[in-house]
């Protein structure tokens, strides 16, 4: 309930540029702060309505969940992801090699370079699926930028000036990953790709899509209104710094306002993504080079 209230509150506030949703957002703010210091009972006494009083009882609980998502679970999922990837790569690449060459001709003068080209330029797709190829290139380049953008939030890395309130690309990178993703989803529903898709394909795309949409909301939010999104890159940098230094501090302290819950959802989806990644076909990112080498060598 509480989560819903605050979500709705911040959404309304966001769209109208404050006023209308201010009551609910204030309520949500009080709720979230309550967990840190005061007991539920005292806040309830100060509260103006019965509904808030009922909600207040769950607020420490909500706060604990939010904290778990943005700090411990994030550590866990990233670690899980790394270990999972290494394990799978070990299982695949550590198996005995094929007994004979699997290359096709004409052979390239340098198999290593040829495989690199196949991996990053995807000439087969450019030739046979040009539109798909365009979207894939935009998508994957944007992905790299996205990774850089996230790293850039750390105060020690400055790709865009430290004083900027925007991430790398100021929201454009988000469009760069989201629009192609919509296309990928679209083509999955069409013959012949539809016939060869399994639930995991759709679910993965949908998970990533929502992950991106919540990211987009935060980055575009900064450009929507003069005040923009309540939290900016500079605010996030404090959170990231805490993560990087393993302080285990609650980022709520440095990320005020009701928009915080959007960040929490974004991070929750990211946690899920990291946990799913080692089991998913995203592993192609790591397998693409070695598998292309088979065709060349």
């Amino acid at each position: 309930m509480n989560a819903l209230f605050s979500l709705a509150a911040s959404a309304v506030q966001h769209l109208t540029g404050a006023k209308l949703g201010s009551f609910w957002s204030k309520a949500a703010l009080i709720l979230s702060e309550s967990a840190d210091a005061t007991s539920g009972a005292t806040v309830a006494a100060d509260a103006t309505s019965g509904a808030t009083a009922a909600a207040v009882a769950v607020s420490p609980f909500l706060n604990a969940i939010e904290y778990t998502i943005v700090v411990p679970l994030l550590y866990f999922s990233v670690l899980f992801c790394i270990v999972g990837i290494i394990w799978r790569l070990y299982k695949i690449l550590g198996a005995p090699p094929a007994p004979y060459s699997l290359k096709i001709y004409p052979s390239s003068k340098s198999p290593g370079l040829g495989a690199l080209k196949d991996t990053f330029a995807m000439p087969q797709l450019r030739r046979h699926k040009p539109l798909f190829w365009v979207f894939l290139v935009i998508f994957h380049i944007s992905l790299i930028m996205l990774l850089l953008g996230h790293l850039d939030i750390l105060p020690s890395i400055s790709i865009v000036p430290e004083s900027s309130r925007h991430m790398v690309g100021a929201g454009l990178v988000g469009v760069g990953v989201t629009v192609p993703l919509l296309y990928f989803l679209f083509r999955r529903f069409r013959t012949p790709v539809r016939e060869l898709s399994v639930p995991a394909d759709y679910l993965l795309l949908i998970l990533i899509l929502f992950l991106f949409l919540f990211g987009d909301l935060m980055s575009w939010g900064n450009s929507w209104t003069p005040n923009g999104f309540v939290m900016t890159k500079q605010d996030f940098s404090l959170y990231f710094q805490g993560l990087a230094q393993f302080t285990f501090a609650d980022p709520r302290a440095v990320l005020p306002g009701s928009h915080y819950h959007f960040l929490v959802i974004h991070v929750l989806l990211a946690d899920l993504f990291f946990i799913v990644l080692p089991f998913s076909k995203i592993l192609h990112a790591f397998l693409s080079y070695p598998i292309n080498l088979l065709r060349r060598k």
């Binding site: 005995p96 090699p97 790709v193």
Partner: peptide
């Protein structure tokens, strides 16, 4: 073997 595992585990169902 490792090549077969790559072939079985890399396909993204791109069509």
């Amino acid at each position: 073997n490792s090549a077969m595992r790559l072939y079985l585990e890399t396909c993204t169902h791109c069509g």
